[in-house]
Design a protein around this nucleic acid. Structure first.
Lengths: 244, 244
DNA sequence: ACCGAAGACTGCTCTCGATCAGTCCAACAT
DNA sequence: ATGTTGGACTGATCGAGAGCAGTCTTCGGT
């Protein structure tokens, strides 16, 4: 009945626990303060103190750090259903920036709102902490990828991870998904130059594994791609690589 | 009066909040189940389901992931006062392994113990979540380091971060600290070969910045090293790079 | 007193991916 | 219709760091 039952966040948390009426209601209340942000303009800038977190309901966001020498490292992407800035509400200053990749809609969540919600429904608290743990596991996996995988496997692994995450909120499947990222985003994420990203994508395309083109990612041979990337989705704590 | 008042964890959390008598008592209770583990034998292995977390009271531990091809990426080190496996108690399986680097002492903390403690003292819960957020911020900074810094700056940055963390529990200063790591540990941490680690250490030593030798790290010129590594300790959320 | 193993260290070669210096194409503004 | 801008794409060159194949030293075991 409420719109929240079909919100991406609800869908995601349902992969972890079955939510009761009460919990859905509390979740509903967290979605009250709706905000929109335009593509390209930072929502939170590194160094400023973060007063709130957000629940992303539509669009994509990236979180990144800028180095003194100007290079940037994208740490993670947020897709619908993801929290954003959850960690930084506890630290005195935000250690990174958030930039919407397209125009987005998000619900603002103040620190007190969240703590209140947790006090009311411990199960919801556990579910949110599960999501946070999962996000951290993704950062760790990202670290491993940059440290120990070559450019091709890195790219393949990244696209598979994105696919699995999107499948959890019904925005992707084993066939592929819509993707608003540019090759520059991929470069800043994977620690490569944009030139090399281009070459890597060509290789993967020519091997018949995956195509990244015109805002869409197409998996041509999901099984072989998983094998090539040595993609083990255990860390995503989902039931399988892709749910359907 | 209690030993907990001088435990490394207490010292660390005190950098964030002043703890009351009650909170110290709860903290004391968390330290009940004392365990020891020998160097080199994994405490938790990736893939197994983690039932408990630990508070490290003495010795060093590393958490790492092994790739299918056998290479390993060390994600983080735990030094006295650090939690260990906090995140994985919520995920169904542990996504990484823990190996004591030397013989260690730790207190086992079951999931219920922790949730009980949180229910009793919300301020302690906040403090522990602060520590967890800080750990995550370190992983992020590590990611940035591997993705965007060259080998020399990476090494310098890593040693400075370790120094700051140890200073927080009074085990290091601007002059240096004792360090049981081998060059292989450094290699697996920084995504380098052990051969290259050796060369990088020589360079740093010959430039008069820092010496890593015989289980001890010596900062020769702290200021210049900070500048060289572009080390900005904001993410550690401490009052300064080193407290004294 | 000798052996074996770990860890630190070195020289040489070669590869992966960065950097430079562009082109091409589509969308949009004037 | 013509410039402008952003993103995709290419070839050539160069360098950081990997990989290999060792040596040297220290330390614990017998």
């Amino acid at each position: 009945m409420t719109s929240v039952e079909n919100s991406p966040l609800t869908r995601k948390l349902s992969a972890f626990v079955a939510l009761s009426e009460v919990e859905l209601a509390v979740l509903e209340r967290l979605h009250q303060r709706r905000r929109t942000f335009v593509a390209g303009r930072d929502m939170v800038h590194q160094g400023q103190s973060a007063q709130a977190a957000y629940i992303l309901s539509s669009g994509w966001v990236c979180s990144y750090k800028i180095q003194p020498d100007g290079t940037r490292q994208i740490v993670d992407f947020q897709v619908p259903g993801d929290f954003l800035g959850l960690r930084s509400i506890l630290l005195r200053t935000s250690d990174h920036s958030f930039e919407p990749i397209v125009d987005i809609e998000a619900a603002e969540v103040l620190r007190v709102d969240l703590l209140d919600a947790f006090a009311q429904t411990p199960r919801l608290a556990t579910a949110v902490l599960w999501a946070a743990s999962r996000d951290e596991a993704m950062v760790v996996e990202h670290l491993v990828g940059i440290g120990r995988r070559d450019a091709d496997a890195r790219m393949a692994h990244f696209l598979l991870e994105l696919g699995s995450r999107l499948a959890l909120v019904c925005m992707g499947s084993k066939d592929g998904f819509d993707c608003p990222l540019t090759q520059y985003h991929l470069a800043d994420t994977l620690g490569l130059s944009s030139v090399h990203v281009n070459r890597v994508l060509r290789q993967l395309r020519e091997s018949g594994l995956v195509t990244f083109r015109d805002g869409h990612v197409t998996f041509h041979d999901y099984g072989r791609l998983v094998e090539f990337a040595e993609f083990d989705p255990t860390y995503l704590d989902q039931t399988g690589p892709l749910l359907k």
